[in-house]
Amino acid sequence: MNSGFPTPPPGVFDDEPPGWTNNAAAPSAASTHAVKPEPYSPPRMATPTAPAMSETLTQRKREMLKRCTDAAQQLGKPVLFGMTTSLILQSVPLPKDCDLNATELHTVSDSHRTRIRAVVPPTTPHIWKPLSAAHNARINKHVHALDLVHTWAQLAAHMSLESLVILGDATLTAIARKPSLSGGRTADEIYQDFVRQVSELPKFNAKATCMIALEFIAPHVDSPMESETRITTTQYGLPRAVTNYTVPGATFSNGAPITLDLAWPEFRVAIEYDGDHHRTDKAQWRRDNDKRELLRHHHWIVLIATAANMADEPSQAELAYRAGRQLALRGAIFDFTLTATPLNELARRKRRKSTGAH
């Protein structure tokens, strides 16, 4: 174990799998361990369950499309929408701390001369000079949405670096899930093209921030909370995790492969993010139980993260500590930190290290 890894107060963690030592590099048959799932608790009738993220995105898109169509018809010509409007029209989750009003209709043009502004319903015009290089999406004959890569870059000046990384993950996933956008590319190829396209854009506001964010975004991410969980582990010094990792030789009874939200395959340690539906949906709860029982037999340690673990910095630190401790017990060497390091500082250190600067 890294000598810099802090020791917890006595009795805080009693979850070491038997047979493990600090320098263990691979699990033994006797070292099987997984987090014990909580008993299923059906939702109370008086408390409606939150809709799945896909349902929320679909409803939001439907409502926004109607408003955008009304605006375009009022103008009497097709309209290109960008910023948060483009995200909604293309079913991408909105960033949490964006300083734009997502209820407004944001239009895009390449110059002040061609700005689009409607009065009823009102629209907010924006200038995006690299517009000629964008491959925009036709939503219907009246409404077009700015290329998602350009939308991500356009929004960079309106949110924190962490939110920009999370939005980058979500953008990659949205592109991968739409055949018209993915064009037969794999998720990794989409990521590589994303990096290339942003890098080749001419100078724009917050491009430097985008270049930092590109170092931390990842493909194969199913939800913003999974992104937030991954960022947390990165900020506390844990090795970079593999996203949506397919476990070799592990399948459900129907033959479907078993995947893990965040995984360190070399050490068989993983984090699964469980949203509310994992608790309130009985079928999902049983599926999770079956999955984690099978992973236990494959000698994986699976830690469960929920919204409570992301609620504040102490909770995030605790999750990072738990994951880091299990990695260290299984032989991982890394520099764990007691406080979260900002992503821009991590990027600066990485650049200094690559150039040999001290």
Rank of each mutant, 00 (worst) to 15 (best):
P17H: 10
A24M: 08
S28L: 06
S31E: 07
S31N: 04
A34C: 15
V35F: 09
P43M: 07
R44Y: 02
T56A: 13
L57Q: 02
K66S: 11
C68V: 03
T69R: 13
T69S: 13
A72T: 03
L75R: 10
F81T: 00
Q90T: 05
S91E: 15
P93S: 05
P93V: 10
K96W: 12
C98N: 11
L100D: 12
T103F: 12
L105P: 04
T107Q: 00
V108R: 07
S109A: 14
S111H: 04
V120H: 15
A133R: 14
H135V: 11
N140T: 12
H142V: 03
V143Y: 01
H144W: 11
A157V: 06
M159Y: 04
I166N: 09
A176K: 02
R177A: 03
S180V: 09
A187C: 07
I190C: 04
V195M: 01
R196T: 09
Q197I: 15
Q197M: 12
T209P: 00
T209W: 00
M211G: 00
P219K: 03
S223K: 02
M225H: 05
M225V: 15
T229K: 06
T232F: 01
Q235K: 12
R240Y: 13
T243I: 12
P248D: 09
A250N: 04
S253Q: 09
L262I: 07
A263W: 01
R268K: 14
G275W: 03
D281F: 00
W285M: 02
L295H: 08
H299F: 13
W300L: 02
L303A: 03
E313R: 02
Q316V: 00
Q316P: 09
A317M: 02
A320L: 06
Y321F: 15
Y321G: 02
G324C: 03
L327N: 03
L329K: 12
G331P: 04
A332R: 03
F334G: 04
F334D: 06
T339H: 09
A340K: 12
T341M: 11
N344L: 10
N344K: 07
K350G: 13
R352K: 11
G356H: 06
